[in-house]
């Protein structure tokens, strides 16, 4: 699915929020969705772009966490926005890598982009969900961007073409970034029927229907992404 396609679906999730009953869900016990995402494909080693112009060898950049996936509800229940406090997140620039490689946030979150390297970086994105260019700034400095629209934001460094990352912006809080072993947990999900989506690195995703019972019991959902 293209970035724009997912953005549309994430927007649709917002409409679902309004469509569902607030009072019913507020009274019901919340459930937990948990499981494991197994990325079956072999990790693609993405190194530097071959640059014949350079004199001398470069240290290999840190391996980004491309195995990390994001699991989220495609259509969110009402009361999806109980947290009205402005959220804050950080995407560091360290050893010529964005850390974390995948960041999942809610709409309205401000992300800090500190530069922890001793060289310049220039963070930018041309994604329709958020277009920005932070310019060049030195080590120890940080700049921030507020994300006000749902969608996938691909982040790059203008100076180092091997640096890239994803920011997934949701209209709701029913999402989780998997742990290094692939495990995830989405908590406080109101009873109802949902579509659960597992996404990895912009190229693969898989969805399935799940139901949270009235008793709010945990639901197990494992994914094998190929």
């Amino acid at each position: 699915m293209t970035t724009r396609g997912l953005a549309d679906r994430l927007r649709a999730a917002g409409f679902w929020v309004l469509a569902l009953s607030v009072s019913t869900l507020a009274q019901a016990p919340a459930g937990v969705i948990r499981g494991r995402v197994d990325v079956k494909r072999s990790a693609i080693p993405v190194g530097r772009r071959p640059n014949v112009n350079d004199i001398g060898m470069h240290a290999a950049p840190d391996a980004p966490g491309e195995r990390r996936s994001v699991v989220y509800l495609e259509s969110a229940p009402s009361l999806a926005f109980p947290d009205v406090e402005p959220q804050r997140a950080t995407m560091d620039q360290r050893n010529e890598s964005f850390v974390p490689h995948v960041l999942a946030i809610t709409v309205g979150t401000t992300v800090d982009f500190p530069n922890s390297d001793h060289i310049y970086h220039n963070v930018f994105s041309l994604s329709t969900a958020r277009r920005f260019d932070l310019g060049r700034y030195a080590a120890g400095r940080s700049r921030q961007v507020r994300f006000d629209r749902p969608g996938i934001v691909r982040v790059f460094c203008e100076i180092h073409s091997h640096m890239s990352a994803f920011i997934l912006v949701f209209h709701h809080r029913y999402f989780a970034v998997t742990a290094p072993d692939g495990r995830y947990q989405i908590g406080r999900v109101p009873p109802g029927r949902y579509t659960l989506v597992a996404w990895n690195d912009g190229s693969i995703k898989e969805s399935r229907a799940i139901a949270i019972g009235e008793d709010g019991g945990p639901v197990e959902a494992d994914f094998a992404l190929r």
Binding site: T2, I44, P45, V46, G47, R48, R49, P50, H162, S164, S203
Partner: peptide, 21 residues
């Protein structure tokens, strides 16, 4: 064909031993 968009990364083959741009 699969991504329906332009690739953005160098091509890595042979377990990362060969990188093509």
């Amino acid at each position: 064909a699969t991504a329906q968009e332009l690739p953005s990364r160098p091509i890595s083959l042979a377990g990362g031993r060969l990188t093509l741009g």
